[in-house]
Simulated scan of single mutants.
Amino acid sequence: MAQKQVRSTRPSARVFRRRRLAVFISLLVVAGLLLWAGFGMASMLRPADPGATGTDPVAGGTSSTSPQPSQEPGTEPSDEATDCLEGDVVIGASTAQGTHGPAQNPVLVMTIKNEGKFDCKVNVGTSQQEFSVTSGSDRIFATSDCVQDPMDTEITIKPGSSETARFTWTRVRSAPGCKIVSAKPRPGWYGFTAKLGDLSSETAKFELK
Results as ranks from 00 to 15, higher is better:
81 A>K: 00
62 T>V: 10
84 C>W: 09
193 T>A: 07
94 S>C: 06
175 A>I: 03
174 S>E: 11
88 D>I: 05
16 F>L: 14
151 M>Y: 04
100 H>A: 00
82 T>Y: 04
23 V>F: 04
184 K>W: 00
2 A>Q: 01
44 M>I: 12
158 K>C: 04
105 N>A: 04
131 F>N: 07
174 S>C: 07
113 K>T: 06
201 S>D: 08
59 A>F: 11
83 D>R: 00
27 L>T: 08
104 Q>V: 00
14 R>A: 09
167 F>Q: 10
185 P>Q: 07
158 K>N: 13
96 A>D: 13
185 P>I: 00
2 A>R: 00
95 T>P: 05
165 A>H: 14
19 R>M: 15
132 S>H: 06
19 R>D: 13
88 D>C: 07
157 I>H: 08
65 T>E: 14
42 A>S: 12
50 P>D: 15
172 V>I: 11
23 V>G: 09
64 S>M: 06
54 G>P: 05
177 G>A: 05
53 T>D: 04
157 I>S: 07
35 L>V: 06
119 D>V: 02
121 K>D: 13
160 G>R: 03
159 P>T: 07
194 A>C: 11
123 N>I: 06
144 S>V: 10
172 V>Y: 00
44 M>N: 03
32 G>M: 13
4 K>F: 13
2 A>D: 00
111 T>L: 07
155 I>N: 04
190 Y>M: 01
57 P>A: 04
46 R>G: 04
149 D>G: 13
155 I>M: 08
16 F>H: 15
160 G>Q: 05
25 I>T: 03
187 P>K: 00
24 F>E: 15
169 W>P: 11
188 G>I: 01
161 S>A: 14
31 A>I: 15
119 D>E: 02
23 V>P: 02
173 R>D: 05
26 S>I: 15
38 G>C: 08
114 N>M: 08
104 Q>K: 00
72 E>S: 14
93 A>N: 06
76 E>Y: 02
190 Y>T: 06
7 R>Y: 09
79 D>C: 08
132 S>A: 14
94 S>H: 06
116 G>E: 11
68 Q>W: 10
164 T>P: 05
107 V>K: 05
151 M>A: 08
145 D>F: 02
123 N>K: 03
59 A>M: 15
45 L>W: 15
114 N>V: 10
106 P>Y: 01
42 A>W: 05
196 L>A: 09
35 L>M: 08
178 C>I: 02
93 A>G: 05
43 S>Q: 10
161 S>E: 09
148 Q>K: 09
85 L>Y: 09
75 T>M: 14
57 P>R: 06
72 E>F: 14
143 T>W: 05
131 F>P: 02
71 Q>Y: 14
56 D>C: 10
